[in-house]
């Protein structure tokens, strides 16, 4: 997938680029409004990450420009501004998602993956990982074509790990994904452990392999090896 990262902070931009590139994406970066404007005008992308506060312009104007070109890129706004107005304006202008800084790279990646899938697969939308299948429309999980019952949170968590397969995901990122702002509760890390334990059990009971690997006690990796 081809992704454009419009972010003026070089450190953040490079971290995002590294993470997304390692997922097999092709990333380009733009640090200024002008550079982004040119790239958007000249090239096509699958997804654009858009910071709203650029040194030489407002990211929302770029969004307007993009839509005026009749382009179909998915757009994720990444902003430090957690203003309801910005969010509403951004989504009304055709952005697909709105992520507030600071965010976890795994969260960003999951959101991008979800947008791209939605754009590319209009009808059936099943995400497969070996013997595990996830129907994104029906929100169901199958193992070897047999449905396994998952609670909403277990489903969310499994999908999050599959979107970020082969990546180490910290418990804090997983907790934030499930509980959002309430993730600061001290024992939310323990619940991640409990949820993962339950998911593992359900999957193995249904005959799937165990793909969860603990990473230094900090998080988990969902991978084949």
């Amino acid at each position: 997938m081809k992704i454009l990262i419009v972010e003026d902070e070089p450190d953040l931009s490079s971290a995002i680029k590294d993470y997304l590139t390692s997922e097999g994406n092709l990333c380009e970066t733009a640090f200024t409004y002008d550079a982004a404007y040119q790239k958007i005008s000249l090239y096509s992308y699958d997804c654009i990450l858009l910071d709203l506060m650029l040194p030489d312009g407002d990211g929302l104007k770029l969004l307007k420009h993009l839509k005026s070109l009749q382009k179909t890129e998915g757009v994720v706004i990444i902003s430090a501004r957690n203003a309801l107005d910005d969010r509403i304006v951004g989504l009304n202008l055709g952005a697909d998602d709105y992520l507030i800084k600071p965010f976890h790279l795994s969260e960003l990646n999951a959101r991008i993956a979800a947008i791209i899938r939605r754009k590319n697969n209009q009808h059936s939308n099943v995400l497969n990982f070996n013997e595990i299948g996830i129907d994104l429309n029906a929100k169901t999980v199958t193992v070897n074509w047999h449905e396994v019952h998952f609670t909403r949170k277990e489903y969310d968590l499994l999908l999050y790990f599959i979107y970020n397969k082969s990546k180490a995901i910290s418990k804090s990122a997983a907790a934030e994904h499930l509980w959002g702002d309430d993730a600061d509760m001290a024992d939310s890390f323990d619940f991640i452990y409990t949820h993962i334990k339950n998911i593992r059990k359900k999957l193995s009971d249904a005959g799937a392999k165990d793909y969860f690997h603990s990473v230094y006690g900090v998080g988990y990796r969902f991978s084949d090896v």
Binding site: E9, D11, L12, A15, I16, D18, Y19, S22, A80, K101, P102, F103, H104, L105, S106, K167, A168, I169, S170, A173, V215, V218, G219
Partner: peptide, 15 residues
């Protein structure tokens, strides 16, 4: 923004 950078670098470090 700095917090976002720390966060993203931690995610990178974890890999």
């Amino acid at each position: 923004t700095p917090i976002a950078i720390i966060n993203s670098k931690l995610d990178t470090l974890l890999q």
